[in-house]
């Protein structure tokens, strides 16, 4: 009965309806989180933001559904895909991968990090473009100067990779160390910042 009676719905109509919902979900109707994806040279990135600012950047290798569910659990389930709302954030990544040092100051919401991890994110933001710092040296700049492993954990759980540059933290022996986006991605990012060109 249903299939017989109901004509197929044009996907463009549903897309237009969704865009209208996005444009109306503002102010008191704003969702807890809006998100979009961007295609970047290091793969598809998911960008999620609250009204306060960008709260999460996820690499393609992190499962998108798992990331969204985690945002639902930790921030709120009222999550809406709203690409246009995150156009500015998307431009930040475009500019960064094109070699811009600090494309522009993007509002951030660091609520997904707490305590010492949040402190480490603050220190990370002071590491200039193109420079490297060791986990031990970064720990030395915190309130727990010997908490090298905890610094490593803070970097590994950075909710805002690329924007908060945990890729600039490398091992004391010169090796790049682990990275949420993959060690090979970390190598490429460090090369981008050293030469202005992202190796393929």
């Amino acid at each position: 009965m249903t299939t017989r009676f109901t004509p197929p719905t044009d996907p463009r109509l549903l897309a237009r309806l969704h865009e209208r919902l996005e444009s109306r979900a503002i102010g008191v109707h704003a969702p807890d989180v809006h998100y979009r994806t961007v295609d970047s040279p290091v793969g598809r990135l998911l960008i999620a933001a609250t009204e306060a600012g960008v709260a999460r950047v996820a690499f393609e290798r992190e499962d998108e559904e798992a990331v969204l569910q985690s945002l639902a659990d930790r921030i709120g389930p009222r999550i809406l895909r709203s690409p246009a709302r995150l156009d500015a954030a998307a431009r930040w990544f475009d500019a960064y991968f094109a070699g811009a040092h600090d494309p522009f100051r993007m509002p951030l919401d660091t609520r997904l990090a707490r305590g010492f991890r949040l402190e480490v994110l603050g220190r990370l933001q002071d590491v200039p473009y193109g420079q490297r710092v060791s986990y031990a040296a970064l720990a030395a700049r915190t309130s727990s100067p010997r908490a090298v492993r905890a610094v490593g954990t803070a970097c590994a759980t950075n909710p805002l990779p690329l924007v908060i540059p945990c890729h600039r933290v490398t091992r004391s022996d010169g090796s790049v160390g682990a990275y949420l986006g993959g060690a090979e991605t970390k190598v490429r990012l460090l090369a981008l910042e050293a030469t202005g060109v992202l190796p393929s």
């Binding site: 919902l21 969204l68 569910q69 945002l71 999550i79 809406l80």
Partner: peptide, 14 residues
């Protein structure tokens, strides 16, 4: 544990 609202739109929008 509540799923992201976007899933609701995707599943029931039509």
């Amino acid at each position: 544990m509540r799923e992201p609202f976007e899933h609701v739109v995707a599943e029931h929008g039509e």
